[in-house]
Structures are given as C-alpha cells and as structure tokens.
Simulated scan of single mutants.
Amino acid sequence: MNIVDGHLHFFAQEAGDYHWLKPQNPPYWQDKQAIALACGERSLTLSSGHTLAGYVHIEAGFDNQRPWREIRYLEQRAQLPFKSVASIDLCSESTLSHIEILAGFFSVAGLRHILDEQAASILTHPKTKHALKRCSEYGLSFDAQLDVGDSKGVNALLRLLEARPTLQVIINHTGAALLSSAVTAAYVKQWRINMKALAQCSRVAVKLSGWEMQCRDWHWRSAQNVVVETVAIFGVSRVMLASNFPLSNWRHSYQTLWQQYEKMLANFTLDAKCSLMANNTARWYGVDI
C-alpha cells in the first residue's frame, strides 16, 4: 500500500538553527534529546507491504527569520515527491514579503504559524487577515496548529475562513489533546462541537498525527476512536493520517506506526484506506505521485 505522509520533519543541525531543539531552550521536555538527531528521507524505513510514495515536510525551525533557507535545503536534497509547509509569522512586518519569496519555491504548498494557546490573539491580529489573503492569492494553504477545544481560537479561525473564501486550512495534530490523562468530558464535548463547526466549511481538512504530543505512551485503540470519530465528522475525503516523524519515535518506529495505522483502519474499505493513508494528502497538498 502506498503512503503519503502528510506531516513530518527533517533535522539538519549542521545547517540550520533549530532553537527549540537545544536543551537550554523551551520546550523543556526531558526526552527532547532522543529526537534531536539528524534525519532525512533515508530515516523513513517501511516494511515490504508499504511504499513511501511521497511526503509533506512541515517547517521544523531551521531558520524562522529566513524560512526560505529550510525550503532551499530540502529542495536540493529531496529524492521522493514532496511538498513543504514553510514557517511564517502572521503578525510580522515582513510577513507579506516572506510569503512572496516562499511562493516562488516549487515545493511550497502551505504556510504554518504555530498558534497553540495564542490562537485567538494571533488569528484576530490586524496583520493576520492580510497575510492569509496573500496566502490564498498564491494558492497556498494554511496549517493551523491549535487546540480545537479552544472556542475563541476556533471562532476566530471560522471568521477568517468566512472572510477569505478561497483559503484552505488544514488542522494539525487532530486539533486536540484527547489522549492526555488530564482530558475531561467537558473538553471532549467542546472539541466535538467545534470540530463539527469547522467541518461545515468544505475548505477545512484535518491531519491525524502527533499522538505522542498528547501522551508519550499513547495506545492505538484510543487513537483509533479519534480516527473513527473524526472521519464521521469530516468524511473520508478531508482526513489524513500522518506521522509527525521523528517525534513519533518516542512511541513507535516509523514502520510500526504505519502498520498500526493500517490495523486501525481494518473496518474501512480499501478505497477509504488509500484515501486516509495517501490520496487525500496528495490531493490537499498537491504531491505528485
């Protein structure tokens, strides 16, 4: 079965900055050094039953002041079909000029500003609406990494989608912390309400990945429940399975992760499996497979 991984990162510390990977800088994860290693296409090992047909590289902090440096590095080395999502600061004075530069690279399909707990303030910032307008004019999507349980952030995103009728948004990492031991029934209820609100817009898709960000020791049955519910809300055509490699290595090897994903989809049709594991990612990001 072909796989198109919609969310992974390569690290090249000898060439980039990666401020967040340095032990003296946040996030202060005790296991951060386990992933702070050089990695690239050759690190993506799969079993004989799976073939990596392509991937989407998500900005990894190579150089957030000059995000095109990471894109240039990737394009010079890629062997497989791929697209990239570049770093952007939506609120910067240089945002529009950066978007213009990034749009000139063949691999750039989208942009990402990690929103997290600042989602509402960033998405309502005066510069953001102009940045996302320019983004959509260049045909670039926006990778929104936010907590979908945060209604203020979700409502701000919905208002931007209404104001920008050609903008495509892809929610990162399920938009949730559903596997966390601290999750409450009230949180899950609000996540479900907000996911349904986002699903009303046909220009929104969801990537299911980053389980280890929620819980290092996550269990595949818990993730499977999230996959089934997300597909029920968005439909098969707007959901993508992805790895978040190399952070996924905290729990599973790359090969084991995709084997587990296929097991999760045991009750899905073959067409649905192909859509969730490859074809949707290729279509939403324009990966030529």
Rank of each mutant, 00 (worst) to 15 (best):
Ala186Gln: 13
Asn244Trp: 09
Met195Arg: 02
Gln79Phe: 08
Arg203Thr: 01
Arg221Phe: 13
Leu257Asp: 01
His57Trp: 07
Phe11Val: 09
Gly210Thr: 06
Tyr261Cys: 10
Lys127Pro: 04
Cys201Ser: 12
Phe234Gly: 08
Ser48Asn: 14
Leu140Tyr: 01
Thr45Ala: 15
Pro67Gln: 02
Val227Tyr: 03
Ile35Leu: 08
Gly61Thr: 01
Tyr285Glu: 06
Ser47Phe: 06
Ser48Ile: 05
Leu52Pro: 00
Trp191Leu: 13
Asn225Pro: 11
Met1Val: 07
Ser107Lys: 01
Ile289Cys: 15
Ser84Asp: 07
Leu96Val: 08
Ile99Met: 01
Leu161Glu: 05
Asn244His: 15
Ile101Trp: 07
Thr269Gly: 06
Glu162Cys: 10
Gln33Thr: 03
Gly104Ala: 10
Ile58Gln: 01
Gly104Met: 08
Val228Pro: 00
Val108Ser: 03
Ser248Met: 11
Arg283Leu: 13
Val226Met: 11
Leu74Tyr: 00
Glu117Thr: 06
Ser107Trp: 02
Ile171Met: 08
Ser253Trp: 02
Ser43Ala: 05
Ala223Gly: 07
Ala36Gly: 01
Asp143Cys: 10
Asp5Thr: 03
Trp20Ala: 01
Leu160Phe: 09
Trp250Ser: 04
His19Ser: 09
Tyr261Arg: 10
Asp143Glu: 10
Ala86Lys: 01
Pro23Tyr: 05
Arg112Ile: 02
Met264Arg: 12
Lys152Ser: 11
Ile71Val: 02
His219Glu: 15
Gln65Asp: 02
Ala272His: 12
Met240Phe: 08
Asn64Thr: 10
Ile114Arg: 11
Cys215Met: 15
Ala78Asp: 10
Gly40Asp: 04
Thr269Leu: 13
Ser180Gln: 12
Val148Ile: 13
Asn25Glu: 14
Ala120Tyr: 08
Thr281Ala: 12
Lys196Tyr: 05
Phe10Tyr: 15
Ile193Thr: 12
Phe11Asn: 06
Glu212Thr: 04
Asp217Cys: 14
Ala78Asn: 07
Trp250Tyr: 12
Gln145Val: 14
Ile170Gly: 01
Ser87Lys: 14
His125Trp: 07
Gln145Tyr: 12
Arg69Pro: 01
Cys201Phe: 12
Ser202Trp: 09
Asn225Arg: 15
Trp218Ser: 00
His113Lys: 12
Ala60Val: 03
Ile193Asp: 12
Pro165Ile: 06
Ala12Phe: 14
His219Arg: 15
Glu137Pro: 05
Leu132Ile: 06
Ile170Pro: 00
Val227Ile: 13
His50Met: 14
Pro246Tyr: 11
Ile99Pro: 01
Thr128Cys: 03
Gln260Pro: 03
Pro67Val: 03
Glu93Gly: 07
Val148Trp: 02
Ala197Gly: 04
Val56Lys: 01
Val227Ala: 11
Arg66Gln: 09
Gly110Phe: 03
Ala109Glu: 00
Leu257Ser: 02
Ile35His: 07
Val231Ser: 00
Thr45Arg: 14
Ala282Arg: 09
His9Ser: 09
Arg66Tyr: 05
Phe268Ile: 05
Ala103Glu: 02
Phe106Lys: 15
Glu100Arg: 08
Asn244Ser: 11
Phe82Ile: 02
Trp211Pro: 13
Arg134Lys: 15
Gln259Ala: 10
Met240Ala: 04
Cys201Arg: 10
